[in-house]
């Protein structure tokens, strides 16, 4: 388990060093703000409204398809590791599993979900 201790420590060291560089730059950088400077950048025009508004829901649909495939991939990882000892039965099972998901992908494809409008 000491390997996972390394992960934790790298997490802390990475965060710490980044925060330290921010601190270092805080010591030497100028502070000269005025209201016009901290307006949102919108190609030198005054911004129109807030930017937290509705966006294309294609993003959401693609994320949804991704979640399904990512769960599939998570199931594939243990299968791939143990495949050497499992033989033909595991191969057939996994082909069926992948085909079921690909039927879903085919359905989404035919429905025109994968088309970016």
């Amino acid at each position: 388990m000491t390997g996972y201790l390394a992960v934790l420590i790298f997490l802390l060291v990475g965060t710490g060093i980044v925060l330290f560089t921010f601190f270092l730059s805080r010591l030497i950088r100028p502070f000269n703000t005025y209201p016009e400077k901290s307006i949102n950048y919108e190609c030198a025009e005054d911004p129109i409204g807030t930017s937290w508004f509705q966006f294309n829901n294609r993003f959401y649909i693609f994320a949804l398809i991704f979640v399904i495939f990512d769960v599939e991939v998570i199931f594939l990882f243990p299968w791939a590791v143990a495949y050497g000892q499992l033989g033909l039965y595991a191969l057939v099972e996994m082909v069926i599993f992948i085909l079921i998901l690909f039927f879903g992908l085919y359905y989404a494809w035919k429905k025109g979900v994968l088309k970016w409008v």
């Binding site: 270092l24 730059s25 000269n32 703000t33 901290s38 307006i39």
Partner: peptide, 12 residues
């Protein structure tokens, strides 16, 4: 240079 640059943070 980037270390010495001012942080221009958006107000909103």
């Amino acid at each position: 240079k980037l270390l010495q640059k001012e942080h221009v943070d958006v107000a909103t």
